Amino acid sequence: MRALLLSAAGAFAVDQISKIAVVHWLDLKHLLVMPVAPPFLVFRMGWNAGMNFGLLSGAEARWILIALAVVVSVVLIWWARGFTRTRARVAAGLIVGGALANAFDRVLYGAVADFLNMSCCGIENPFAFNLADVFIFAGAAGLVLWGEDRPRAAKTP
């Protein structure tokens, strides 16, 4: 369980520190766009009041999305108690940390601070994301690979 809690705390901290550094210290909230290594990496300010691609972006959905992140985190922690592989617990922790970091943004700002924009090979990506989103994606991929390592009961004919 320690691996889960440490990875959750780490993901949460890295995401929040990155947002403080880019959004506030580099003042992206006012500059709105900052080329870093165009077109591969551009800091592009976006406030996402909803879910992916702005779904459920109404003001009334804010607290529902915060509650959903907390409930999913609690359920995931409960489920991960049965994991025997450390990497599965780390993957679950990445999801928990990312989800709670985005929920924290919703409490503080009313929306999630997104600032990473990546494009490549002549394809322009209009969407921005943040490190919490990266941690959630990586954690989900990790759970697909390592989430269930207990042997399943043998089927009898």
Results as ranks from 00 to 15, higher is better:
82 G>F: 09
47 W>T: 03
136 I>C: 02
1 M>R: 13
3 A>Q: 14
10 G>C: 04
87 R>K: 12
154 A>C: 09
149 D>C: 06
82 G>D: 14
31 L>Y: 13
145 L>H: 02
139 G>S: 01
130 N>V: 05
109 Y>G: 02
122 G>K: 03
66 I>D: 03
31 L>N: 14
141 A>V: 15
134 V>F: 04
81 R>S: 13
133 D>Q: 07
121 C>T: 09
120 C>Y: 13
45 M>Y: 14
8 A>Y: 00
44 R>K: 15
57 S>Y: 03
81 R>F: 12
136 I>L: 05
136 I>G: 01
4 L>K: 00
70 V>Y: 11
112 V>E: 05
128 A>P: 09
47 W>D: 04
136 I>F: 02
153 A>F: 13
54 G>Q: 09
128 A>D: 11
105 D>I: 06
79 W>K: 09
77 I>F: 05
51 M>V: 15
102 N>G: 02
85 R>Y: 04
150 R>I: 10
17 I>C: 13
104 F>K: 05
42 V>L: 03
132 A>C: 08
131 L>V: 12
93 G>H: 00
57 S>W: 03
41 L>A: 06
114 D>I: 01
26 L>Q: 10
61 A>G: 08
107 V>H: 05
33 V>D: 11
53 F>G: 05
118 M>F: 10
71 V>Q: 08
17 I>F: 14
107 V>T: 09
28 L>Q: 06
115 F>P: 04
7 S>R: 00
149 D>A: 11
62 R>M: 04
103 A>V: 10
116 L>D: 04
152 R>L: 10
127 F>R: 12
32 L>I: 10
3 A>L: 10
3 A>R: 10
108 L>H: 07
109 Y>A: 08
65 L>S: 09
